[in-house]
Structure formats: structure tokens, C-alpha cells
Computed example of a mutant assay.
Amino acid sequence: MVDELPSLPGYRELWGRSIFQCRYCHAWEVRSSAFSYLVPAAERLEWSVFLKGWTDDIVAFTDGAL
């Protein structure tokens, strides 16, 4: 498996420390903290609502595409 990270400034440095791929593997430890979600496509925007099981503080980043 190879992680293909987006070319965003600082993303690679935070990967695995405060940016996580899997909410099941990593999110429980940081539940009730502020979450953000990098939305890859319009059909995945609803995923940010699903994250409310871990926190009420969610920001969805769409890169202005949605």
C-alpha cells in the first residue's frame, strides 16, 4: 500500500501526527477535538456529517470546488 498525499503545504509533515487516513484507527484517541475533512469530491461531502460521531467541531475543506 502506498499513501498518495495531496500536494498541500505542510501536509506531509503532519501526516500520521495530526492528519490521519482512517478515523477508526486514529480518531478515537482525539475524539471531541476539532476535526477537518479534505473533501475529495462532491459525493463525499456527506462524510463530514458522519464524523459527528466523534466530534461536534468539524470543518470541511472543499478547495472551492463544491
Rank of each mutant, 00 (worst) to 15 (best):
A60C: 10
R23C: 05
D57N: 07
L5I: 05
V30H: 01
S7Q: 13
A41M: 15
L38S: 06
V30E: 00
D57Q: 09
L66G: 11
G64Y: 00
F35C: 05
S36D: 04
W47G: 00
R12V: 02
A27I: 08
A41R: 14
P40K: 06
F61D: 03
R17T: 13
E29H: 10
L8F: 15
A65D: 08
R23Q: 09
L38H: 14
W54Y: 15
P9F: 04
I19C: 04
I58F: 06
R23L: 06
K52H: 15
D57K: 12
G53Y: 09
P6A: 04
R23I: 06
C22P: 04
V2Y: 10
V59D: 02
W47I: 11
M1K: 02
W15D: 15
R31W: 06
A65T: 13
G64S: 01
W15T: 06
D57F: 06
E46I: 01
R17P: 08
R12P: 00
W15E: 13
H26T: 08
S33C: 13
S33R: 15
F35T: 08
G53M: 11
E46W: 03
A42Y: 11
E43I: 03
Y11S: 02
D3H: 12
S7P: 03
F35P: 09
E43A: 02
E4Q: 13
L8S: 01
K52I: 00
V49I: 08
G10A: 02
R23H: 06
T55D: 07
D63H: 14
G64Q: 04
W28K: 09
S18W: 09
E29Y: 07
G16V: 07
G16R: 09
E43G: 07
I19T: 03
Y37P: 01
L45F: 15
G53D: 07
L14V: 00
F35W: 09
F20I: 06
R17C: 07
V39I: 14
V39D: 09
D56N: 15
W47E: 14
V49A: 10
V49K: 15
E43L: 09
V39S: 12
R17L: 11
D63R: 14
L8R: 06
E43R: 15
F50R: 12
I58P: 01
A60K: 03
L8V: 13
R23A: 00
R23F: 03
P9K: 08
I19W: 07
L14H: 11
F35L: 15
V39H: 05
W54T: 09
M1F: 02
S36H: 08
E46Q: 10
M1Y: 11
S36L: 03
T62Y: 02
R17A: 08
W54P: 09
D57A: 03
P40L: 14
S36N: 06
A42Q: 14
F50M: 04
P9G: 00
S32I: 01
A60G: 06
A60M: 03
L5H: 07
V2M: 10
W54I: 09
A41L: 12
V2E: 14
W54G: 02
L66N: 04
Q21K: 10
L14F: 03
E46T: 08
P6R: 05
E13T: 08
E4S: 14
G10E: 05
V59M: 01
P9R: 07
H26R: 09
S18P: 01
L8G: 04
S18D: 05
E43F: 12
L5N: 01
